[in-house]
Write a protein that binds this DNA or RNA. Sequence first.
DNA 1: AATGTGTGTGCACGCTCGTACACATAGAGG
DNA 2: CCTCTATGTGTACGAGCGTGCACACACATT
Lengths: 195, 195
Amino acid sequence: MPDHKRAAGTRLGRRNDPDRRDRIIDACIEVVSRAGVAGTSHRKVAAQAAVPLGAMTYYFDGMDDLLREAFTRFATTISDRFERRMAAAPDADAAREAVIAIILEDVFGDDRELVLSHELYTLAARDRSYRSITADWMARSRAALERHFDPETARMLDALIEGLTIHRALDSQPRDPREVEIAVTRILTRGGEAR
Amino acid sequence: MPDHKRAAGTRLGRRNDPDRRDRIIDACIEVVSRAGVAGTSHRKVAAQAAVPLGAMTYYFDGMDDLLREAFTRFATTISDRFERRMAAAPDADAAREAVIAIILEDVFGDDRELVLSHELYTLAARDRSYRSITADWMARSRAALERHFDPETARMLDALIEGLTIHRALDSQPRDPREVEIAVTRILTRGGEAR
DNA sequence: AATGTGTGTGCACGCTCGTACACATAGAGG
DNA sequence: CCTCTATGTGTACGAGCGTGCACACACATT
């Protein structure tokens, strides 16, 4: 019985480094970010993690299983950061500015995260079983926004963040940062929508 | 000299069906929508298009070349439809409703287009050379929106459409369609953003 | 009818891939 | 120190891949 499938607490005969499995997951994220899901293979991940090829099938039930764990970790990491930033905002106005900063920084920041997000979305769009990862991520983002805004606004704002981030990343020419500010402000302005 | 590389007008010795190349491109879109870019190969596309394997390298300089043409066609198709819908709106209010309809229909509509869009975004996120496809697509969307709204609003609205579409597609639970209406209305409402 | 030319094809090579399975080995229990 | 067991590894197999290239074949020209 493989170690990772045994109930926690029964530690028996464990020898090598116990976080080899973790290393494989991290290596997988790294390989995906460089080569894409299309270019990711057991062999490349094994090489990146410096583990033998046989360890791949030993620890995971195939690429899907591995990818699921890798993207779960990735989404959790991003989600944690978002939550922390939102929690750091003392009031709604600070939260508004934090959101603007996140959009602008995520765009000009690491290409790596942009790529990984899209790889995940693509998997989720095709395969229902990845959708729980994106659903959880979205749920956490919304919960973080609901510290400062009502639930409905939080959902709209979350969608706006997504769209602005994507479009600014895929745009060929740079845009005025003030546009982001204006868009966020408009979404946060409750107007004559009660009809 | 391959037919497709020859200057238009010089038709010499063309024999078989002249739109074989077109069929391959369509077949590529089809295969990508079913198997993803990751699972697309010359052989699968050839089988789908019912052309011999050798035709792949004959008509295209490799998968990248083929994918670029396939996604260009896909983006153009979607873009055309969007443009037509916007052109059909007589005034700004009708345009507003058209946008709302597009968001709601695209979500509950074909999974195929959702998947293909994400596959394209993923390629564009990783590879600069695909970015001109997405950039052109965005430019056309914005131009269509600018029939009814000012350029700045058009860009914000375009981003909002993106975000709402994605989030509603990747969400696990259904949302009230009225939220879309409210979000669009807020973006279209010019408020106290002049500061 | 013979010839030439450019279009398009069939095939096989070398490669990478995931997976299965025989085997090594570390540590526990005797 | 020996034995047993569960953990982990090395390897080889078959499938699927892109590509290069010799070649078939339709048609224009003579």
